[in-house]
Design a protein around this nucleic acid. Structure first.
Lengths: 341, 341
DNA sequence: TTGCGAAACCGAAACGTTTCGGCTATTATC
DNA sequence: GATAATAGCCGAAACGTTTCGGTTTCGCAA
């Protein structure tokens, strides 16, 4: 394969001139510049990124750590993040290196191997429920000690300050409930996987109840264990709720994410319950699948792809200037009223 | 960060000795070897892979091309492949570089940029429906011209010979139908996305019908446009089928993949149709989600993760010895009878 | 014509490895 | 105890870039 030396030789210039011209450091005579560019075309020269990166300290790639046990990419939320990251990556001309391992050997730190071997300039960690129980503070400290730029996404249960991209989420429940209250709903159910409002993986039932009461609603929240939601559990839970007699059954259901809402939608349609006529459905976490459901789901918040973009942008900043103090980027959300309410 | 020079200096040996010892090319005296290893620990030395790969012609990474428009990772099939690829990658100690772009600029070849810049040693292309209509032969030829080791997965509509990993799939329909015939089913429906049996994206209805007839079954296949399946379309189609009066409704439903079968399952459960009592369900493409459904789905074929593993293994072979003629690795499948029939 | 600043161009060094050929010390063989 | 074979160790070159510092050339004003 052609190297820059071949190009230079063919163009009749020195190696450094060729390099400078190709990198725009030197304009050069119209004649020389032309010869160099022509030589590139003739020889089909493509710079060897390995060599380039060896010289310039950046690797031009970022690592994506998605600790997983099940095939985690099948989650709509993660897929949305990924879509955003990829879109931004294409713009920024960075490579994306997957490090979706389990990192469960003792002492192993999320993605540290990639950074230490200079394969990547920084990391995006998308911590899923799989990392529950893990002492993520150790990861954060370990990576900081290495000087590894890091942006954390999704669940974080540590105490260490760390750069994160989150949804400005505390208001989602509020705004969705408000919306349902305006529509006159009094009996409202909740379908959640039992995380998000309180650390530890269990829903704070009292907390839910209080929020609902403040809108004059009564509720009976239903939740699923972590993971169940993906295995048809959400569908079953929705069926359970909807099988109640019509005057006990909620007139609206707030779900933690669009995936749950879609499951509930399918349960309702299967039981010939009209949406939104007999059952309104809303989700508090916007996901791409909500928009394309049989009845598009009212939801809240910025799309996950936006969060992905922000994460990559922030990481690029950190790589540029690693000395910045950790900062949480909260992407503001808003209510997206769709057909399901 | 410490380099191998620092290690050598600290251990009091020459650079090349340190390198040889660390790479096992040289055993060395117990004393020297010990000093070198200790120096590595003391300094926290990690080899700079960029430099290593510059010297040795391998990059130690493979590229994963998943042309996508929608967030494609949310497909259970792709997620399964990925899981297998990752499992194998972890074993083989290769990096995985994502190139999930659209590659839709004219003349752009799947993943060629990655290979030309020596970022990867080879490519796995997972062509989804998104690449329909693309002239994939150009991609195959282009990559071959570059000398890029290549393994193709999933849909392939080209003529060029190419290394592929496929399911030994033609028999899946046969075996599943046979199984249902043994169970005494006469009225069997089919739910498919309309590809696989014939190029061009349309199902060959006559072909289906003939197969069914050979088992003494009558059928009325139902199909969905590409993409619809993911947007709740499968669920709707299943509902449509199941709403027919009980003596017209099929007693069994064969679905193209577990995802469709799960959608049908949910539709059935919602309509209080017992599975498998009143409706048997089977899929002809094994996917991880079928096993964990509310009623585990009878399915056929090797799991997608196995295909992923095979693809990576084959690619590793090709990287080792690129001169091999293209070969199709067909992973044999078998019927997996589960609760749904 | 002279002087001067800017631009063009070049050679060499550097990035951190691996590897090749050669030298020396050690061990094995007779 | 002499010689051959082996293992230990080393210096230098190489991988393909970018970049630094320098020299030459050019164009323009005085």
């Amino acid at each position: 394969m052609a190297t820059i030396v071949d190009v230079a030789k063919r163009a009749g210039v020195s190696l450094s001139t060729a390099s400078d011209i190709l990198n725009g450091k030197l304009k050069g005579t119209a004649a020389t510049a032309g010869r160099v560019r022509q030589a590139v075309l003739d020889l089909g020269y493509r710079p060897n990124l390995l060599a380039r990166r060896l010289r310039t300290p950046k690797s031009g790639a970022i690592g994506l750590v998605v600790p997983f046990r099940r095939p985690i990419f099948s989650s709509a939320v993660i897929a949305d993040y990924l879509a955003g990251i990829q879109a931004e990556q294409e713009r920024a001309d960075l490579n994306l290196v997957l490090a979706s391992r389990r990192y469960e050997k003792p002492g192993e730190i999320y993605g540290a191997d990639l950074f230490e071997s200079r394969s990547v300039d920084g990391l995006i960690v998308i911590a899923t429920r799989e990392s529950y129980g893990r002492d993520v503070d150790t990861d954060v400290r370990g990576l900081r000690a290495l000087g590894c730029p890091l942006v954390w996404m999704h669940f974080f249960e540590g105490r260490e300050p760390v750069d994160r991209v989150t949804r400005a989420g505390a208001d989602a429940w509020h705004e969705v409930l408000e919306h349902l209250a305006e529509r006159g709903h009094k009996r409202v159910g909740a379908l959640t996987v039992g995380i998000g409002l309180k650390a530890g993986g269990r829903p704070n039932v009292a907390h839910y109840a209080k929020r609902f009461e403040s809108f004059g609603m009564c509720t009976k929240p239903e939740w699923l264990g972590a993971g169940e939601a993906f295995d048809g559990g959400a569908f079953g839970a929705a069926m359970e709720i909807l099988r109640r007699p019509a005057d006990e059954r909620p007139t609206a259901l707030v779900c933690e994410g669009d995936e749950l809402a879609v499951a509930a939608l399918q349960a309702a349609l299967g039981m010939s319950i009209k949406v939104p006529g007999e059952l309104a459905l809303a989700s508090v976490t916007n996901t791409s699948i909500g928009a394309t459901a049989a009845v598009p789901i009212t939801t809240h918040g910025a799309p996950g792809s936006m969060l992905g973009r922000m994460a990559l942008k922030r990481l690029a900043e950190l790589i540029e200037d690693p000395a910045q103090p950790p900062r949480e980027v909260a992407v503001p959300g808003q209510l997206l009223v769709r057909a399901s309410t």
